[in-house]
């Protein structure tokens, strides 16, 4: 364990639908995310992964139970307050990247800063900095349509970390990528967790992501059914490789 939880869900229950169609998507889930850790949330389809991700990300509110982000209780807050929480504490990465097709890579990152009220030259410089950090310094002016899937997902990662959130939540970030790009994105997320001391939660089916995990949480039928932790001191080889490559490049 690497410190106090930055995001904590306690006994979270979520009911979806109504009447005869009502479904209990989460049945008392308790989970905590700590800084510097990359956690995988794995489970079969319909197990409640995305619902839990939405609740942890303050997009959905639980039917019962509580969620704390950076020590602040978010349960019961109105939609506008939850939006404020998201922009100040949480970065999102989506399976389909969800980039704005009409904006360049730089503008896609700037918009995450813009919604926080960070504008002008400073915001542009910050957006450029994070894009260079994810290896896209040569693609600043490119639009998503002119970039590969791996590059688009790296833009999405840059957008998620540009606002320096304490938590990064990723929904199937490798599902639309080939093996090489999938590894590159996971290595990037692992580096973000380690070097920037953020808490990263990745919802995934993809077994290729396992080597990058500090911890794997398994969910089935709306309940946490298991948790595995990688022994301390063991680095994922891809992280080491990436670091070496960056050093060689410099």
């Amino acid at each position: 364990m690497t410190g106090e939880p930055v995001l904590e869900a306690i006994d979270v229950v979520k009911e979806l639908g109504s009447g005869a169609g009502k479904v209990m998507a989460l049945k008392g889930v308790t989970v905590a995310l700590r800084p510097g850790e990359l956690t995988l949330l794995m489970g079969p389809s319909g197990s409640g992964k995305t619902t839990l991700l939405s609740i942890l990300g303050c997009i959905l509110t639980p039917t019962s139970g509580s969620v704390r982000v950076d020590g602040q209780l978010t349960t019961g807050l109105p939609a506008e307050k939850l939006a404020m929480f998201r922009r100040d504490h949480i970065g999102f990465i989506f399976q389909s990247y969800n980039l704005f097709p009409t904006l360049s890579a730089l503008e896609n990152v700037r918009i995450a800063l813009d919604v926080r009220g960070e504008k002008g030259f400073k915001a542009a410089a910050r957006a450029e900095e994070v894009l260079r950090d994810v290896g896209l310094g040569h693609r600043l002016k490119y639009h998503p349509g002119n970039m590969s899937g791996g590059e688009q997902q790296r833009v999405a990662v840059a957008r998620a970390i540009a606002t320096s959130p304490s938590v990064v939540l990723a929904d199937e970030p490798t599902a639309a990528l080939d093996t090489e790009n999938g590894h590159a994105v996971m290595a990037l997320l692992a580096r973000i967790a380690k070097e920037q001391n953020r808490s990263v939660l990745v919802v995934t089916h993809d077994p290729r992501t396992l080597p990058y995990a500090d911890r794997v949480v398994r969910i089935e039928d709306g309940r946490i059914v298991g948790e595995e932790r990688r022994p301390d001191g063991l680095d994922a080889p891809e992280i080491t490789d990436l670091t070496k490559r960056r050093k060689a490049h410099v």
Binding site: R87, I90, N98
Partner: peptide, 12 residues
């Protein structure tokens, strides 16, 4: 795109 903006925390 508007839903993405909302998810990123933009105000309405």
């Amino acid at each position: 795109e508007f839903a993405t903006l909302r998810a990123l925390g933009s105000s309405s």
